[in-house]
Design a protein around this nucleic acid. Sequence first.
DNA 1: CGCCAATCCTACCAACGAGGTCGGAGATGA
DNA 2: TCATCTCCGACCTCGTTGGTAGGATTGGCG
Lengths: 167, 167
Amino acid sequence: MIFTTKAEYGVRLMVELGRQAKPGGAATSLKAIAAAEALPLAYLERIVALLKKAGLVESTRGAHGGYRLSRTPAEITMDDVVLALEGTVAPMNCFVDDTDGSSRVLCSHESDSGHACATKLLWLRVQGGVMEKLAQTTLAELVEFSHREPAATASALKNEQEDLTHA
Amino acid sequence: MIFTTKAEYGVRLMVELGRQAKPGGAATSLKAIAAAEALPLAYLERIVALLKKAGLVESTRGAHGGYRLSRTPAEITMDDVVLALEGTVAPMNCFVDDTDGSSRVLCSHESDSGHACATKLLWLRVQGGVMEKLAQTTLAELVEFSHREPAATASALKNEQEDLTHA
DNA sequence: CGCCAATCCTACCAACGAGGTCGGAGATGA
DNA sequence: TCATCTCCGACCTCGTTGGTAGGATTGGCG
Ligand code: FES
Ligand code: FES
């Protein structure tokens, strides 16, 4: 399992915020989002706190308050979102995360018996692949994707897969 | 955390088997591998059972028995290994795995309120990126990589990263 | 002003999976 | 026969995660 459902909820929350893309307009209450996406409200509160700490959303307190994006959806890449939620995208727990940007590699089987850690190469490649894909995807893309009818999902994903295969 | 330490141990086990690449030669006992890599023997037994079930290793029972690769290291790609160990590389628990090959997408937020599941596009992209990187890496590469001195690790990884960035 | 609707914040909990162990039952060469 | 090795299932323990409870603030609005 690459990501936790916390990330899923967070991304879905961001998409919902991006759907009513009001640059500096009215805020959307968490209650509305929770109802629209059928997610537990109390849990969303904790998730959105992470997004706010990362500067991805802004909040307005009090009655008729809520949250709005601090940037336009096209300017938000998913690596920002996922990093804010998961803290780090480490392939393995032996990749110690400094949480001050990119996770630093600090594998425990280094220079033991005279040969390098065999798995580090593989994990680094995979991590690179994940981060690449996350950085390539903007929130605007997901918003646009979710606006299509579910019937169009199959073909859209087919195109995606083809793009991936001969990439 | 993308992979579990079970995958780490399994890959390291495979590398150790690939290091003495005897095509049909003598088998290596788990005890020797556990000692060489400082891994718990009892746990390795359970891991290697998965590799055997997937047809990646062959076993010889009894005294002087052990395990050997059923193919040459160059013919073994890491997606085989990881799939055998982890069962599936699902980005999210809403991706139900059929375990009969590629995990089938069966997301729970399909066709609810008239719009497609927003996160599916992202998770599929990430999963594609991971599988791509896994399939590109052969066991022979890891064996060769682990033969270098640890001092050479830094530069080797630097080259890797550069390959990744302008890829 | 007083209510209500929101964000905020902390502590707490239950379930699950993952890492790991134990003990034994077959196989097999020396 | 005996040491050694694979095999197999039950069992345990710990950390993480998803989720809740309950409140303290903040601020619009009648
Ligand atoms: S110890 Fe896991 S990557 Fe080196
Ligand atoms: S429900 Fe998670 S991808 Fe659709």
